[in-house]
Design a protein around this nucleic acid. Structure first.
Lengths: 146, 146
DNA sequence: GTGTATGCAAAGCCTTTGCAGCATG
DNA sequence: CATGCTGCAAAGGCTTTGCATACAC
């Protein structure tokens, strides 16, 4: 999070529309939608704001297989299904502890072909590199049930 | 899988090197390595072959957060850790059924900040679109323990 | 011999950035 | 008013593609 951050109309609109959609739009899609309210907004601004919001943990940036990044207005959800044909992305809610293909299919309506689980964090090398008195404690380690 | 596919030296080398590495190189990295054995190979060819191998399920294409795609010579593994600082990707082996942050950290040496679980498959719309007598049964539904 | 794959280079696409002017706190 | 943000457009970086040639079967 930066020192001082201003609340601009553009940032507000981008976030509002992303949340209102409830889907996983690309930056370009969001740009088109935002343009209805702010005709002069630029793609660059949309990208900059999405990036910033994601850095602050307010939204989520997804890099699913496929060309474009997608954004999720809900930073809490972590389960997604993506279509290998059209690239569409949906959520899978209420995934039980012992998640299974069958359950994912029931909840999403997809034919589940596979899955991918990714952890993210700081690798040993990077830890060493900035070990003593680390000042860049970006994401504090919340104790959620990973 | 295409009608007829030929076994070229280039494809062979790309696959061999990817498997030999055991890491998750980018196309460019693999290109440099392959060049040691086939000085005239082109980046385009490396991309084409990686794409083809991934389509055939022989390797895995990963689109982790970050710019470049990464490739995994083992199509079976599904657990990865990626460093939010340098983009490095590692495997997490032997992930227990009730995976937990602690276990993932033990196995990888990373400081785990979060995770992402993605299913992939065919969305309801795409199913409808190619429903009767589908001829494109790309990935057969293996009954692995998703 | 036929059709796939390659090499090379150009084109594509998504995303990032430089810069001058604008607007927020 | 100081400086973060915007719009615009150009630049970047990874990936894909067109085309003539080479090679696998």
């Amino acid at each position: 999070m930066r020192a001082t951050q201003r609340n601009t109309r553009q940032r507000e609109v981008v976030l509002e529309e992303l949340r209102r959609l409830g889907t996983h739009p690309t930056a370009a899609e969001l740009y088109e939608i935002a343009r209805a309210r702010l005709p002069k907004i630029s793609l660059g601004t949309v990208y900059r704001n999405l990036e910033l919001l994601a850095e602050n943990g307010i939204i989520q940036k997804l890099k699913i297989s496929g060309a474009e990044a997608r954004f999720d207005g809900d930073p809490q959800r972590h389960y997604h299904v993506c279509c290998v044909r059209c690239g569409r992305v949906d959520d899978v809610h209420d995934l039980p502890r012992n998640f299974v293909r069958r359950r994912a299919k029931q909840l999403s309506g997809y034919d589940i072909l596979g899955f991918r689980l990714e952890f993210n964090g700081i690798c040993p090398e990077c830890k060493k590199r900035s070990a003593p008195g680390s000042d860049e404690g970006a994401s504090q380690e919340k104790d959620r049930a990973v």
